[in-house]
Amino acid sequence: MVLAEGVHKRFGRNEVLRGIDLEVKAGEVLCLLGPSGSGKSTFLRCINHLERINVGRLSVDGELVGYREVAGKLHELRESEVARKRAEIGMVFQHFNLFGHMTALENVISAPILVKHEPRERARERARALLDSVGLADKHDSYPSQLSGGQQQRVAIARALAMEPKLMLFDEPTSALDPELVGEVLEVMRALARDGMTMVVVTHEMGFAREVADKVAFMDEGVVVEEGPPGEVLANPRQERTRAFLSKVL
């Protein structure tokens, strides 16, 4: 589903990604671990072209991200083409980024109506079902400012799912939450993984990674230091850097 080969990303002269090779197969859950500033979030944002990569190849579902290859040459995609591809990839942010001027329900129906031109009634019906499924049956008409962090993040997940994505990206979805609210969000994510959703999750929740991930990758200073099944990487890390990090967070 996601294939990265030698991906580099620079911000000015600051090289944030320095050759990332990773693969996520359909139905897999990949957890990206590592200290802040290691490039995890940047890599995630490259996958749906919120950031443009400088070197390497990055593809989703066999198609290059942000480019088309014609006779060995890369052509930039039009804005509308990029948007169409992004619509197939859901993203959940650390700070939720719910649309503040819309209720929970309006947040969920906004993109299906605007981007997919879905009939309003059908979109509302699906949105209600989605909000119910993330445990917010009584919050459809609440504005984000009236919801707790955990509730907001669950609305954000429902909003992403409303586009029926084939891949979900999670950028530290629980880092901005009070400890007691983390569980309700992880529960929703666990259910998603169980249903076979392909997911790339940047997280500091080691318990979640151990339990849900098919694969974890430990990143530091823009490279993948170590990757493998969570049982191996988290229990018996081979690299010294991984061991040092895990000893601090576990």
Partner: peptide, 26 residues
Amino acid sequence: DEGQSDAAHSLGMTRLQTLRRIVLPQ
């Protein structure tokens, strides 16, 4: 907040849609 545009773009909205429906109303 820039996160609003990020979220709108990630949902497949174009720049113009993001400006009209998400950024300007706020």
